[in-house]
């Protein structure tokens, strides 16, 4: 398998997360995100994708989760045990699953709330930058965010994260519940931001087709374990990935039921 060539901005080494002292959610996950690179973490519902992101952003504690083993390293520094707000200061931004905008605040206030530690001048500059990427947010900046459309809320969630001036942007299922053309638009903007500003991106997705279009490297997580990782090209060529994650490249014969019961090769 190909390893990313650039030095990693983020690496997880054998991270194990446990909820409520009993249930093991991820079991020895190792991931690297190269500096300035875009990496996808793909997997089905409940595979441990969100837990992995929360282990990185430190939001596990709020849900009584805990990193029990392994190490999360960001910019060469171990961040296990750090408070979430300190990780944000270091440059880690986590866009939560389901958007989670501050619904009773306007988009503009959402952006203000996310720059609590910045000077007014820096905040204004970041705000212009966010409005530059997401023009629609600017048009809707005075409405309560709860009334924005799903796509606008997702843009706001990403824009809000950008206000913290991240070096690593983690997105948890940004395509959830959005029309395909919006997914394409949002992914395109993320890709542009990454290229323009050297922002590293860790993208968690169920929608593997869309994700593999913009990232350079992908990890596959199943039942809390990384079962495979490779460059996007290699992943796209892999027949199992094609079948189980990309919906079959050759056109599936639905009469051939046996097809479904075939085991994934990496499990044997």
């Amino acid at each position: 398998m190909e390893q990313p060539s650039v030095a990693p901005i983020l690496s997880l080494n054998n991270v194990e997360v446990i909820y409520d002292y009993v249930s093991l959610a991820i079991k020895g996950v190792s991931i690297e995100v190269p500096t300035g690179g875009m990496v996808a973490l793909l997997g089905a519902n409940g595979a441990g994708k969100s837990t992995t992101l929360k282990a990185i952003s430190g939001l596990l504690t709020a849900e009584r989760g805990e990193v029990r083993r392994g190490e999360v390293t960001f910019l060469g520094q171990s961040i296990s045990g750090m408070m979430p707000q300190d990780r944000v200061k270091l440059g880690i931004a986590h866009v939560l699953e389901g958007r989670r905008v501050f619904e009773h605040l306007t988009p503009e206030e959402n952006l203000v709330a996310a720059s609590a530690v910045r000077s007014r001048h820096v905040m204004k500059r970041n705000m212009d930058r966010v409005y530059g990427y997401f023009k629609r947010l600017h048009e809707r900046r005075g409405v309560a965010s709860g009334y924005l459309s799903g796509g606008e809320q997702q843009m706001l969630a990403i824009g809000r994260a950008l206000m913290t001036e991240p070096k690593l942007l983690m997105l948890d299922e940004p395509s959830l519940g959005l029309a395909p053309f919006l997914v394409a638009e949002i992914f395109q903007i993320i890709s542009t931001i990454s290229k323009d500003e050297g922002l590293s991106v860790l993208l968690v997705e169920q929608n593997a087709v869309a994700a593999l279009d913009i990232v350079s490297h992908g990890y596959l997580i199943e039942n809390g374990r990384i079962v495979m990782h490779d460059s996007t090209e290699a992943l796209k060529r892999n027949p199992d990935i094609q079948e189980f994650y990309l919906g079959g490249a050759k056109g599936k014969d639905f009469r051939d039921i046996k097809h479904y019961s075939r085991r994934k090769r990496w499990l044997t």
Binding site: L96, A113, R160
Partner: peptide
């Protein structure tokens, strides 16, 4: 004020507030 907006944000969603670095 900005501090006031931050407090309203906290009341809206604790987790989201943590995620953008609000103490």
């Amino acid at each position: 004020t900005r501090t006031g907006v931050v407090l309203r944000a906290i009341s809206d969603d604790y987790t989201a507030a943590w995620s953008v670095g609000i103490s």
